[in-house]
Amino acid sequence: MPTIVSVDDSTVPGEGSSRLLLLVSSDNKHIVVEEDIMSRSRFISKQVEGFEATSQRHAILLPFSSFVLNKVIEYCSHYRGYYLLEDDPDAAPPGRSPVREWDQEFLDVDRNMLLRIIKAAHYLEIKSLVGSCARAIADMIRGKTTEEMREILGVENDFTPEEEHSPSSKCTG
């Protein structure tokens, strides 16, 4: 895969050498995770930088459930030590990358879960996961009719009947 570059093993810190973070989910579950795993998240990285500046570490409260958080941690653990192009802020992705096979399996969840994960990924600023979820959602609605799309995306038809018949909202494509 062109977008995944394995870093030389010797540079991957051994287990236990990373410091621990305490994450608290919205359902008040306390989850301890290695800082190194979560470094993919720009949000967490910024928090950690803050800790280092003030020499004070505290729990990080997150606005989503432990179920979702565990999923995100699973993702981050999987790609631990990998360089993903999207997560490197200096390297603009050269194009749309295909859904990685593992991601495809990992994101084989119902649409509610998928929307929760993408929201969490956005909050945590994990671009690679946002991108994978976006592609997965796009796959779900590919080739669907407008009515089916409403179902999948969880939106309601709020056009007035008049507007619905107006050309700017009615599409045959």
């Binding site: 796009a138 609605i141 590919r142 080739g143 407008t146 309601e156 599409c171």
Partner: peptide, 13 residues
């Protein structure tokens, strides 16, 4: 698909 999405709701429109 984009055109179909156009017609789903106001916000997406």
């Amino acid at each position: 698909d984009l055109l179909a999405c156009y017609a789903t709701c106001r916000r997406l429109h």
